[in-house]
Simulated assay, not measured.
Amino acid sequence: MQDSQGTTELRPSHRISRRDALRYVAAASALAGLGAAAAGAAAPVASAAAPTLIDFAMRQIPARDIRAAGHSGVINYVSTSRPGSSMGAKPITLPYAQSLAAAGLAIVSNYQYGKPGGTAPSDFTRGYAGGVADARTAWQLHTAAGGGQSAPIYFSVDDDVNRETWNNVVLQWFRGINSVIGVQRTGIYGGINPCQWATADGVIGRSGSPGRVWAWQTRSWSGGQVYPAAVLYQRVVSTVSNPGPVVGGLEVDVSDALAQDVGQWNLHP
C-alpha cells in the first residue's frame, strides 16, 4: 500500500442544529456512496464498477478533488511518518476528516508506520509488545481525528509473509493489538493468505455485511485471487513502473468496496 448489521435510526428528542443536520446528511451520503456494493456482496471477485476508495500518504488531497474523480472515500493513516520522512497525510487530522465527511466521503482507518526496507522495520516484526504499542498509537490518532468508537483499524502486513512467519511473528503482533482494542475493532491489510489466516485464527473482526470480515486485501502477493470474505480489494497499487491514477495532482492506490460495511467511520460512531 502507499505510504499510498443495519444502521441505527436516529431519533433525536430535541431540535437539531443546522451543523448537526449537515453532519447527518454527510454521514448518510458516505453510506449511500457504498450502498451499491451490497448488491454484489456475494460475488467472489472484485469489480471495476464497485464503489472505490483511495489511499495516499504524501499529502492531503482536497475532498473536492476526490469527489470529482468519482471516488466514494479514503483509507487514511492513523500512524505517523517514519524517521527521515514527512508525509502530509500521516496521520489524518480532525480538520481534514471533517472536510471529507462534509463532502459526503467515507473514511476508513489504517495503521502503518514501518515498511520493508524503510527507516523503520515492518510493524509486524515487533511481535506482541509491538502490537500493544501500535494499537495504542493507532487508537489515539484515530479518536483524535474523530474516528468512530466502534470502527475498525486495518493494520498492515505489507510483505509476502509465509505461514511460519505468520504463526511465529505476525500472529503474536495481532494478539497484542487485540489486547488493546479488541478483536472486533481489528482489521488486516495484506495479501490473500494473511487475510485468510487472520480470519481462521480469530484475530480480526466481522463486518456488518453478512459473510465479510475486516480484511483489506491487496492484489500484491495474491496470485490474481480475491478472498470471498474481504470487504476491500486494492485493485490498483501505484508504483514507479506502474503509476496509479492521479487525483488532485497525486498518484493514488485504488480499492474496490466489496461490501456495504467496509468499516467506514459514519457506520461505526
Rank of each mutant, 00 (worst) to 15 (best):
V74K: 00
Y154H: 13
V78E: 02
A200C: 02
T93K: 04
D160W: 09
V180Y: 09
G73D: 00
P121Q: 08
A89L: 09
Q98D: 14
I188L: 13
N167F: 05
W173K: 10
Q112A: 14
A144V: 06
C195R: 03
G73L: 00
A129Q: 15
Y96F: 11
A106M: 01
Q98H: 11
L141D: 01
G191R: 01
G84P: 11
V203D: 05
T125F: 08
V108L: 02
A144W: 06
R163E: 10
G114E: 08
R82V: 13
R212W: 00
G70H: 10
G127S: 10
A145F: 02
V180S: 10
A151D: 03
T165D: 12
A200E: 15
G202W: 05
D123L: 07
G88V: 11
Y128H: 13
T186R: 05
A151E: 03
R206Q: 12
V108C: 02
W214A: 00
H71V: 05
D123Y: 09
S156M: 10
S150C: 08
V183T: 15
L100T: 04
W214R: 00
Y113K: 11
Y128P: 01
F174I: 09
A106S: 10
S99P: 08
Y96V: 09
Y77M: 04
Q112T: 09
V169P: 06
G187N: 08
I92A: 13
I75M: 14
G205I: 04
W166F: 14
V170Y: 06
H71R: 06
G148H: 03
S150A: 15
W214H: 01
N193P: 00
L105S: 02
V213R: 02
D123N: 11
P210L: 02
Y96N: 02
Q172T: 12
V74M: 03
Q184N: 12
F124K: 05
P83R: 10
V157R: 03
Q172A: 15
T199L: 13
P152F: 04
S156F: 03
Y113H: 13
W197V: 00
W166K: 10
N178M: 11
I177L: 11
T143P: 04
D159C: 12
H71F: 13
A144I: 04
S86T: 14
R212T: 01
D134N: 14
V169H: 11
A120Y: 15
A151V: 08
G205N: 04
D158K: 05
T119D: 06
Y111F: 15
A129P: 05
I192T: 07
R163W: 04
Y113Q: 08
A138Q: 07
M87W: 14
W214M: 03
S72D: 01
T143Y: 11
G208P: 00
Y111K: 08
Y111Q: 04
A198D: 07
G187F: 04
I107K: 02
W173I: 09
Q149T: 14
G73C: 02
N193A: 15
T165Q: 15
